[in-house]
């Protein structure tokens, strides 16, 4: 494993987030603090309803916390994501953030190449032939070159998730947030996905946060967090029972 940088690029500071009112009020996050480092792949686990997805959403700039800060390295400067205006936050996500979700969410009408091209074109990263070349490069690295003209209906589950990973990585983000990226896949394809994400972190220097229930992912990550009842703790990378 390559050396992890000592300065975090994403810091969650005393994050609190509650849902509901009155007697139904429930704390999903209670003063949670977390550092993510460049080149590091972190795993966030915990039982259902423990607040994993809430923490991912808060850290990624999708859900505002009730209290606390999310400080992110944006062009060498640590900025509080939740002090930005919505427009600034949208632009920040465009510059820095990639997402992978359990459900792939690929456009049924587009080929694998077009799924990546649309991000480059609409995000203003590249246009026309340049966008096509960059999309092809990424698909090549993911082993999807033979499938670049195929639409989602012609791809297997594993291939679809690799395309989704390509879509998240093609703009070379500083942070990648993956919510249950392997849960819709068999273990063989799940392993491939984790290898690709680990390579994405180590080779590209991205900070990757993976939310999952699956302990089999532990060998593929650099750090493991456990979240339960809104409280976060870092745990050793030894699978239970070892």
């Amino acid at each position: 494993m390559p050396a992890i940088a000592t300065t975090p690029t994403l810091k969650g500071v005393r994050l609190t987030r509650t849902y509901g009112d009155g007697a139904k009020r429930r704390a999903a996050l209670q003063h949670v603090s977390l550092d993510l480092f460049p080149g590091q792949i972190a795993l966030l686990m915990g039982p259902s309803g423990s607040g994993k997805s809430t923490l991912l959403a808060v850290l990624s700039g999708l859900l505002e916390p009730d209290e606390g800060q999310v400080l992110a390295d944006d062009g060498g400067e640590m900025r509080d994501v939740w002090s930005m205006t919505p427009k600034q936050r949208e632009a920040y996500r465009l510059r820095t953030t990639g997402f992978i979700f359990q459900g792939f969410n690929l456009f049924p009408a587009f080929t694998a190449r077009q799924q990546l091209e649309i991000v480059l074109n609409w995000g203003g990263y590249a246009r026309g032939g340049d966008a096509r070349r960059q999309a092809d490069d990424m698909l090549d690295r993911l082993g999807l070159s033979p499938n670049k003209h195929k639409k989602p209906a012609q791809l297997s589950g594993g291939e679809k998730q690799r395309v989704a990973i390509g879509r998240a990585l093609v703009k070379n983000p500083s942070f990648v947030f993956a919510d249950e990226p392997t849960s819709a896949l068999d273990w063989e394809n799940g392993q491939k996905v984790m290898e690709l994400l680990r390579d994405g972190a180590h080779e590209r220097g991205a900070s990757i946060l993976v939310v999952s229930h699956d302990h089999r992912l532990l060998p593929y990550v650099d750090v493991y967090y456990h979240l339960e009842d809104g409280l976060l703790e870092e745990r050793p990378l030894t699978p239970p029972g070892h």
Binding site: E90, A91, L94, N105
Partner: peptide, 18 residues
């Protein structure tokens, strides 16, 4: 019907006007 695919693009920071 395409809301989830569009939601991904929004999450990635693609402006809504696109």
């Amino acid at each position: 019907a395409s809301a989830r695919e569009f939601a991904i693009l929004l999450a990635l920071g693609i402006p809504r006007w696109r």
